[in-house]
Design a protein around this nucleic acid. Structure first.
Length: 511
RNA sequence: GCUCCGGUGGUGUAGUCCGGCCAAUCAUAUUGCCCUCUCGAGGCAAUGACCGGGGUUCGAAUCCCCGCCGGAGCACCA
């Protein structure tokens, strides 16, 4: 076995003695694992985790962290991952029917594949069943206090008059709720926890409430009695055999609440990891599903993939690979602190992946024209500076070029038009000087990009900070949409569309 | 008001459980130099952090206490 390479050894070892492979990984000090080991991982035969998104909109960057971290963990432990849509509020967090698929696509984009996808709204009968069982175990009671009244009692640590209701009476009243015979606000089912618990957040929380607004999914539109997250999620985590839960600190108290239910059922609660909120720089648009949705509806954004939006659809359209996002998210770790994510971390990870493949091209954004005198008729910059074998781009000069206004040298000074040669700026023209590269290497003549003045292709470059018009070398017309190029000295961009009028639309990725 | 959680360079992170190998890791960022017909890539170097105060100890980023600061929950939202 010693003649196998390390990877081969690992594969072979995992086949014959998986438990020793885990030990090997630990001894290796987890060299390629940016995330800490999962707590108590060795206690489980299979690591099972879930993503539990609310499908109230397509994903923004913040949501990506969930898939990136959980997916990385399940890959690493060769575990099982489920995408469970927690869509149990048809009213205030009303599901968006397009979001279910958009979210699954986003997960694929991030390079993960859930083993299973389920929707809480398909599972109401199961929740009812366990609610009845909980009632029979004296773990819940129906309560008809108003929310305000109960809150007052709860804050004082006092039981409400309904708390000592019998299981059979609760059972009957809960059945009425399930049948839809109760109005919203009239009655809820509460879990009997500890009404004097020092932490008021844990006292007799609501498990089911009535909602009249039909669920947008037809299959779930008849239900009126809906579980809240703590009940639904708690039951599902147990039934799907989840071993590790990773979620935000906003759900810190959830585990403590759900443990009361687990205790009634004599279940073991999964291991839990919490992380803090992340803030992303470089965006003016707030990273919240509802704000983005609002801006789109108001017409301030073109859609979920507008380059100004901090959404996954937007980054995808800009040519940023999901892997790069995953890498940056995983690097954030799982600290409970609030964290600032720099887009530059994503950009750096992406650049590493796309640079080698991206052909080079010239794009001039803020052009100024100069006649060219005496130069070769064709410029031949390389397709990729690190890959001679990919050849050169042949750009017809056509007598005049356009360059960035800021690149124009003072009169009498020289500039090197990349792939064409050295020029001296006379009053209103570029006079060809020659192609001796010593001018650049030894005399420090600046190298700049350029396009033919008469035969350049108009380009709209859509950037996170707004659209820019420019012109590019004609060769970019040949690229299919979805190709990622590097506009030299401008940055990487994804070709989005080549229209019939001879215009290219590209989305800017990053420098 | 009550209850949790956390504070390491500009940013993120490792180390904290089991105190010494940490004058603190890695990445990103910024700057400079080298290389290069890109401000990309690559190479080299520099910059820069243990919230504060006490205590325990021969020794504390690490343990204890008190502050301070930040975050979260106390919804018939997720």
């Amino acid at each position: 076995m010693s003649d196998l390479d390390p990877e081969g050894q690992e594969r072979r070892l995992s086949a014959i003695a998986p438990e020793r492979l885990a030990a090997l990984g630990a001894a290796d000090d987890g060299d390629d694992h940016p995330l800490p080991d999962l707590p108590n991982a060795e206690a489980f035969e299979e690591i099972r985790m879930r993503l539990a998104p609310n499908p109230n909109g397509p994903w923004h960057l913040g949501n990506a962290r969930m898939a990136a971290v959980i997916g990385t963990y399940t890959d690493r432990y060769d575990g099982w991952m489920c995408c469970r849509f927690d869509d149990t509020d048809p009213e205030t967090k009303r599901p968006d029917l397009d979001a279910y698929d958009a979210i699954l696509n986003a997960i694929t984009y991030l390079e993960f594949e859930p083993d299973e996808a389920i929707r809480a709204s398909d599972r109401l009968p199961t929740y009812y069943e366990y609610a009845r069982e909980l009632i029979d175990r004296e773990g819940a009671y129906t309560c008809s206090c108003s929310a305000a009244d109960f809150s007052e009692l709860k804050n004082a640590g006092e039981a409400c008059p309904h708390r000592d209701k019998s299981a059979s009476e609760t059972r009957a009243e809960f059945d009425e709720m399930v049948e839809g015979e109760v109005d919203p606000g009239e009655r809820v089912l509460r879990v009997r926890t500890d009404i004097t618990h020092p932490n008021p957040a844990l006292r007799d929380w609501v498990a089911f409430r009535m909602i009249d607004t039909p669920h947008p999914r037809e299959a779930a539109s008849e239900f009126r009695c809906w579980p809240l997250l703590d009940f639904q999620s708690g039951i599902d985590d147990h039934l799907t055999g989840i071993t590790h839960i990773v979620r935000g600190i906003d759900l810190q108290d959830s585990a403590k609440r759900q443990r009361f239910v687990y205790d009634y059922f004599d279940w073991t609660y999964p291991e839990v990891i919490h992380w803090g909120h992340i803030n992303v720089d470089a965006y003016d648009v707030p990273m919240s599903t509802s704000s983005i949705k609002g801006l789109i509806e108001a017409g301030d954004l073109d859609g979920w993939d507008d380059p100004r939006a901090p959404t996954l659809a937007s980054l995808r359209r800009r040519g940023i690979r999901g892997e790069a996002i995953t890498e940056a998210m995983v690097a954030l770790g799982t600290s409970t602190n609030e964290a600032d994510l720099s887009m530059s971390a994503i950009y750096a990870a992406n650049r590493e992946r796309i640079d080698d493949d991206a052909d080079r091209a010239f794009l001039v954004q803020d052009g100024i024209e100069r006649t060219v005198i005496g130069s070769p008729t064709v410029g031949e910059p390389p397709v990729h500076p690190d890959h001679d074998e990919r050849g050169v781009r042949e750009i017809q000069v056509g007598g005049a070029v356009r360059i960035e206004a800021e690149d124009l040298p003072p009169n009498g000074e020289r500039v090197w038009l990349k792939g064409l040669g050295c020029m001296r700026h006379t009053r209103d023209a570029f006079e060809f000087v020659g192609t001796d590269i010593a001018a650049v290497r030894e005399e420090g003549v600046p190298v700049i990009h350029w396009v033919p003045a008469d035969d350049a292709r108009p380009v709209t470059l859509r950037r996170p900070d707004g659209d820019v018009e420019g012109t590019a070398e004609p060769g970019i017309a040949a690229y299919d949409s979805d190709t990622v190029l590097q506009f030299e000295r401008v940055g990487f961009a994804r070709i989005d569309a080549q229209d019939d009028e001879g215009r290219t639309v590209a989305y800017f990725a990053h420098p």
